[in-house]
Design a protein around this nucleic acid. Structure first.
Length: 278
DNA sequence: AACTGTCCCTGCAAGC
DNA sequence: TGCTTGCAGGGACAGT
């Protein structure tokens, strides 16, 4: 499922293949992906515009347009953005098609339709896209320091796993990377955040950055069910480096002694090694 | 504040 | 083999 590394991989692809392109025509299939506004609003907002940049905030893709408005794309669970030649057959669940001025098309594909595409006014982001205005710090930005994490961790006795998944505090970590980060930091997912000392906090900060950066370098994680691929349809490879996610019942490869345990917290599967995570 | 559960949706896998 | 059931999850939201 797309988390920060996958969204960042898509963003880089958009930077190469969509930025500078003019959108000549727009097709919207299922209205559910434009539920925040309407099919008409997306078509009017995008037709004839040129994409100026490809930015990312957490798991949100933000694409400023030459009209002063911006396009927001959120992939949620199963969303994909693909760039393809006009003649290529569209996969099922292709809900938005952007016809570009270079003969290519950009497709928004999403079987589970949790994702969405919307055009909004950045000057009114607080009212039009309030969740973006409330996003926390981006964990791969240089501005994310150990001191920032220290302040976050000290402020709550919430367990570490839900804390990492809270987009209002740190934006971009989802279920997979949350588990992998905590494993690397050797911290239990149910450990109350305010019990971390300075050393453990430093380890957690380092793990957040290292796991996310390594996953970006690997082009993200492609799982058997979610079918994440980049803009050109290429799979990621970070799933080969997963130590705990979806490995419940297996021997821990980090310590060689523990067995990966799977629990459910907040309705989400959580995987950890009870021996090396404390 | 900090939990849990529910909803949205489809594809896949397990079980009968 | 062919059905049904359950599970996966991002994020908003309601309820405790």
């Amino acid at each position: 499922m797309p988390e920060l590394p996958e969204v960042e991989t898509v963003r880089r692809g958009l930077d190469r293949h969509l930025v500078g392109r003019r959108i000549e025509r727009v097709e919207v299939g299922r209205e559910r992906v434009v539920r925040r506004t309407s099919r008409e609003a997306l078509i009017v907002g995008l037709t004839g515009t040129t994409v100026l940049a490809a930015d990312r905030r957490g798991k949100y893709l933000l694409l400023p347009l030459d009209t002063g408005e911006s396009m927001m794309i959120h992939l949620r669970m199963s969303g994909q953005v693909l760039i393809a030649e006009r003649t290529r057959p569209r996969p099922s669940h292709t809900h938005v098609v952007l016809h570009l001025d270079d003969g290519f098309e950009a497709w928004f594909v999403d079987p589970r339709t949790f994702g969405e595409v919307v055009v909004y006014d950045p000057d009114r982001v607080d009212s039009e896209l309030p969740e973006i205005a409330r996003l926390g710090i981006d964990p791969i930005a240089d501005s994310f320091t150990r001191a920032d994490l220290r302040a976050i961790v000290r402020s709550t006795r919430q367990a570490l796993k839900p804390l990492l998944l809270d987009q209002h505090r740190i934006a971009g970590i989802g279920n997979i990377y949350g588990d992998e980060i905590l494993h690397r930091a050797r911290l239990r997912p149910d450990r109350p955040a305010n019990t971390l000392d300075a050393r453990a906090t430093a380890r957690l900060h380092e793990s957040i950055v290292e796991v996310l950066v390594a996953a970006i370098e690997a082009g993200g994680s492609t799982l058997s069910d979610a079918q994440y691929v980049d803009l050109m349809g290429v799979e990621g490879s970070y799933q080969d480096d997963h130590r705990v996610y979806a490995r419940g019942g297996e021997r821990c490869e980090t310590c060689g002694r523990g067995w990966i345990r799977r629990t459910v917290t907040g309705g989400r599967g959580t995987h950890f090694c009870p021996v090396c995570q404390r």
